[in-house]
Design a protein around this nucleic acid. Structure first.
Lengths: 247, 247
DNA sequence: ACCTGAACACCGTTCAAGT
DNA sequence: ACCTGAACACCGTTCAAGT
């Protein structure tokens, strides 16, 4: 029924299971070295700078040598997406709401710091050791809430998604320039002004009404930190209501 | 202060503002024709099949002729992301919660039908006529709830994000095979089994506990429709609580 | 003004050959 | 077993030349 597409071998290597080689010369590289080099390039020049040749030259081998460690460039991107992730904060008995708010915010900030992540398709489901550690700690924070396992998973998934969407939105509005966060859309005009030049009031009545209030404008608009907190609280209120129903 | 990066000219064209040309031969194409051809290829072969040459050959011109209509391939992707979107359902006085639930579900289904959308970076903020129509109707549905404009925008943003995350997750778990939705992860083993082979219980205690309940398994797991509804209700409960506080 | 065709500077990936 | 170097089949984009 299910087609036989085995897990990419890069996943095994992400878990430190490099194959034991008895014959031949010792490997000069490992996956982590390659991944770190690729991440460095992506941080500096974006995903467009990450060619197999560029990564290879950074670690001092020929481009084709990388294929001893990853089956394809897509696998390299998968490994990068796990490799950028730092260890999660430890719950240590923090109230679930405080912990998950912090957990979500750090994830969003990470996405903005490494905006190329927003263009990596295979972020979900998590398969690498670092992303799964984040999942584990979020589940830990929900211990004692009375939620069943399926509910916990759904809560965590929703929060991950919120971090991702918010980061994508902020990135889109600021043009990816970190200096501009909280300011205007890239270019001379801000988002509200741009829309005003495009939208006609009869076809887009509600949007026109909202635009006229200025909330889509620059610094006071969609992008600032208050909006992140607002949407996050919306979600956490939903979770709290669910927990209340259980108790 | 803000760098002068004007709106891409493709945005103007997405709004039907093709330049009026007085001299020279009449254009043989327009942006919509090109966009539709590109969408057809993406639906059939994925984003990898969408090369400028392939799109051009489908509409019967040389690859380089496309640059009369888009400044770059990235602009073409932007136009595609608006072009696939159908008109939204009309609110027509539907209760806000019913309307937004339907609105979010249709968006998620669209993302799964055209999974290549998940790899198009510039989905947000919406700038095209079709995506902005969806935004407008969601705002309309929230009329009479007492929410202020900023709150409405935040609610709608959160719902868009939820649709996107859920679609990305389902796509990731099913390997993009639409037949497999609700079934197992691509490959022989399902997600739960895969994790069981990777994770050690001491480093990932809560994940191990959740895994042992089987909720991460195939059909009953993360992917089925009940989970989508569950997370959506979580969000809508938060919105309802907010509206209640206002009333 | 629109489109073509040649050309440029790249890509990711394969494969046989060296060690 | 690991790495190299040549080679293959592409890319997106430019630019001068045609109409």
């Amino acid at each position: 029924m299910a087609q036989e597409r085995p897990l990419p071998s890069v996943v095994q290597r992400m878990w430190g299971r490099e194959p034991v080689s008895r014959r031949g010369p010792r490997p000069r590289l490992d996956l982590a070295t390659i991944t770190d080099a690729a991440i460095g390039i992506a941080d500096a020049q974006g995903l467009a700078g990450v060619s197999m040749a560029a990564v290879a030259s950074r670690v001092g081998v020929a481009a084709t040598a990388l294929y001893r460690y990853v089956d394809s460039k897509e696998d390299l991107l998968t490994a990068m997406a796990d490799g950028v992730v730092p260890p999660p904060p430890e719950p240590d008995g923090t109230p679930w709401r405080d912990y998950l708010a912090r957990w979500t915010r750090i994830q969003r900030d990470l996405l903005l710091e490494h905006a190329w992540l927003l263009s990596v398709a295979r972020l979900v489901p998590p398969l690498g050791p670092r992303r799964l550690l984040w999942l584990d700690r979020a589940l830990t924070a929900l211990d004692g809430t009375g939620l069943d396992p399926g509910e916990k998973i759904n809560v965590v998934t929703s929060l991950t998604g919120y971090a991702l969407t918010d980061a994508a939105l902020v990135h889109g509005l600021t043009g990816g320039d970190p200096q501009m966060e909280g300011a205007a859309i890239s270019g001379a005009a801000d988002y509200g002004e741009v829309l005003a030049g495009l939208v006609d009031p009869e076809t887009y009545p509600s949007l026109t009404a909202v635009m006229s209030t200025g909330v889509l404008g620059g610094a006071e608009g969609w992008v600032d930190d208050g909006d992140f907190t607002f949407g996050l609280d919306l979600l956490l209120d939903g979770v709290e209501a669910l927990i209340g129903r259980k108790g």
